[in-house]
Design a protein around this nucleic acid. Structure first.
Length: 574
RNA sequence: GCAUCGAUGGUCUAGUGGCAUGACUUAGGCCUUCCAAGCCUAUAGCCCGGGUUCAAUUCCCGGUCGAUGCACCA
């Protein structure tokens, strides 16, 4: 079967976008190399992402290690939750998910069972693969994280991070200080993450090492209105909400304001990033008609997430592929790290005016407590202060012992205190992008074949700002001084920061085709008119049309075309 | 991971127990005044390891990668 995926990957391999890794040793599934054009394109896509998130949103980028110590991933739940309990059938040697087999036999609650319990239940269940009773099988954990050790003699366990997000959480206190103790703020990270997939099959769709671009935006739990929501409130796009999925009805098109008002989206922070993501994906070359936003169903949502949407991109080979996830993760991550690290991850929110609060508290009479309890007096006093006020004596527990404190050893004091504000654990809004999947989607969506004069023309209609090579310069003939002029034009362009290529080999048509196939949006041809009046032809990749422009305008003009400030159509008919 | 099938220059492909086809691409040259034209020349290949054999790209075993189904996964 040869479909568009094969066509795209063949082109990507031939022309230097994407290669199987380390082919001389036989590649390994789930790992890829980005070739010269692929690396260039990947960086341009990352830069568009930075423009949206860092420049426009003001969420600065940080860069954390890809190896993290064990505690990070104990806290995040990956050590426990990211591992599957597996067993191997002794008869057919098939690897099976132990909990799935047990559930499949009609026993509920298997996912909560431990290894011993699962092994006991498995004994009488037939193997779903070969139907033999499983008998005595060992149940072991397969963790999707790559494990490593830090330092000599493996004293300290480490994992390759399975997501970039944890870095923003572990740096929370530093980030809060950096943003001068105010909500909301955010930080982003673009980098590699690793998951030791059991059997990655779908080429660059499921990788063991992949690039993520994630933003963690810390917001006040009760103020989930994006301060700049108006920018996207009128943005219209199709949403496939929980209701549409349950009813089997198609996505509904609505503005973000309508989505928030109708309660389809939990709040405007989520809605804002749905729209921003749509905007971003279309900017890099995803076709809007092959893009949809699907809300997670309650049972597929992580237990802590209160709302979660996926941007799914349609691929002819793979169907709808999750490419971006946008979730309200509440305070789950910060709480988890608080628990693991013992540090407090909160923001002090001052009240508009300090509140006066009446407080009743227990004040120990140390003069009486001291002689009575001697070396335990301090701990008794602390326990007493922490306990609820009561008139007729209080029971406290010290060192495992229950002690009754009669009323004469303390007094109950009513006092009025000024409370300037409160400690709040922020909620986290997390847009998380799979860069590699975005790259594949853009390649598939921008690829086109058409017939021009009985000859097949293959063209990547990449947005100019994504194209790896931005302009090509050709002398029409390889003589009469034309190559020299073309060489000078090339230098003008590259000096201006434009990535341009010179090509004088073969017929002019062949050179245009070569550039079409790698998505170069503009080609400049030096012809016999150039030495006479200082103009060249500028050819547009998509329409194959040409205009004559002065050589001296080229750098600024190409720069403006790449940035989308000018369009080729405007040059055609000013 | 299991099962089935496959792997020949960069790409597509013919074929074989004993010199490995052809086309396209690429490079150099000739020609050529705007969309893969033509001619000449050159470069480049049997996935890896082991076995059988005088001799293995070919047959056998193991592995790697890829496709498909199952399982797994976002």
């Amino acid at each position: 079967m040869s479909d568009i995926y094969d066509t795209i990957m063949d082109l990507a391999k031939r022309r230097g976008f994407i290669w199987p890794t380390a082919e001389c040793y036989g590649s390994v599934a789930g790992f890829i190399d980005y070739g010269p054009l692929g690396s260039m394109m990947k960086r341009r896509i990352e830069d568009v992402w930075r423009e949206f998130y860092v420049v426009r949103e003001g969420y600065y980028e940080i860069e954390c290690p890809t190896i993290g110590q064990e505690e990070i991933f104990i806290a995040s739940g990956h050590v426990k939750g990211f591992s599957d309990k597996m067993c191997q059938c002794p008869h057919c040697r098939e690897y099976l998910r132990a909990d799935h087999v047990v559930e499949g036999a009609g026993i509920t609650g298997a996912s909560a069972m431990d290894a011993a319990e699962l092994a006991r239940r498995l004994r009488d269940i037939p193997c779903p693969s070969c139907s033999e009773p499983l008998g005595e099988v060992g149940v072991f954990s397969f963790n999707l994280m790559f494990e490593t050790s830090i330092g000599p003699g493996s004293q300290r366990k480490g994992y390759l991070r399975p997501e970039t997000a944890q870095g923003m959480f572990t740096d929370f206190s530093r980030l809060l200080r950096f943003y001068r103790d105010r909500l909301p703020f955010g930080a982003v990270q673009i980098g590699k993450s690793y998951r030791n997939e059991i059997s990655p099959r779908q080429g660059m769709i499921r990788l063991r090492e992949f690039t993520q671009a994630e933003a963690e935006i810390f917001v006040h739990p009760e103020k989930k209105d994006h301060p700049r929501f108006s920018r996207y409130s009128g943005y219209r796009m199709p949403l496939l909400g929980i209701r549409q999925q349950q009813e089997g009805s198609p996505a509904v098109e609505m503005t973000m304001q309508e989505a928030v008002d109708a309660g389809v989206v939990a709040h405007s922070f989520i809605a804002y990033y749905l729209a921003l993501t749509h905007d971003l994906l279309v900017t890099i070359g995803v076709k809007p008609e092959r893009l949809r936003f699907r809300q997670h169903l309650p049972d597929e949502r992580a237990h802590y997430a209160m709302d979660c949407w996926d941007a799914e991109v349609y691929s002819e080979r793979f169907g709808w592929v999750e490419t971006v996830g946008i979730a309200d993760r509440t305070d789950y991550d910060l709480r988890a790290h608080e628990k693991q690290s013992g540090e407090r991850f909160s923001v002090f929110i001052p009240y508009p005016a300090p509140r006066r609060e009446k407080r009743v508290r227990v004040v120990p009479r140390m003069g009486a407590l001291g002689p009575r309890f001697r070396d335990r007096a301090k701990r008794v006093a602390e326990a007493l202060e922490a306990s609820a006020p009561a008139e007729g004596g209080i029971s406290v527990s010290v060192g495992g012992e229950e002690i009754f404190i009669p009323p004469d050893l303390y007094e109950i004091r009513e006092e009025e205190v000024e409370v300037p504000g409160e400690e709040v654990t922020p909620h986290v809004i997390e847009p998380s992008y799979g860069i590699d999947r975005m790259i594949y989607a853009v390649l598939e969506h921008s690829y086109a074949e058409e017939v021009v004069k009985d000859e097949e023309r293959r063209v990547l209609r990449l947005p100019p700002r994504i194209a790896p090579i931005q302009a090509a310069v050709f002398p029409l003939m390889n003589r009469d001084g034309l190559p020299e002029i073309a060489g000078r034009i090339l230098e003008d362009l590259t000096t201006f920061g434009i990535v341009a290529e010179f090509d004088d080999s073969g017929a002019i048509g062949r050179r245009y085709r070569r550039q079409d196939e790698i998505g170069t949006p503009f080609a400049i041809t030096v012809d016999y008119q150039t030495p006479e009046d200082g103009t060249v032809t500028l050819r547009d990749r998509d329409s194959m049309e040409q205009v004559r422009v002065p050589v001296r305008d080229l750098p600024a003009l190409i720069g403006s075309l790449i940035r989308g400030r000018t369009t080729f159509a405007e040059l055609k008919s000013p």
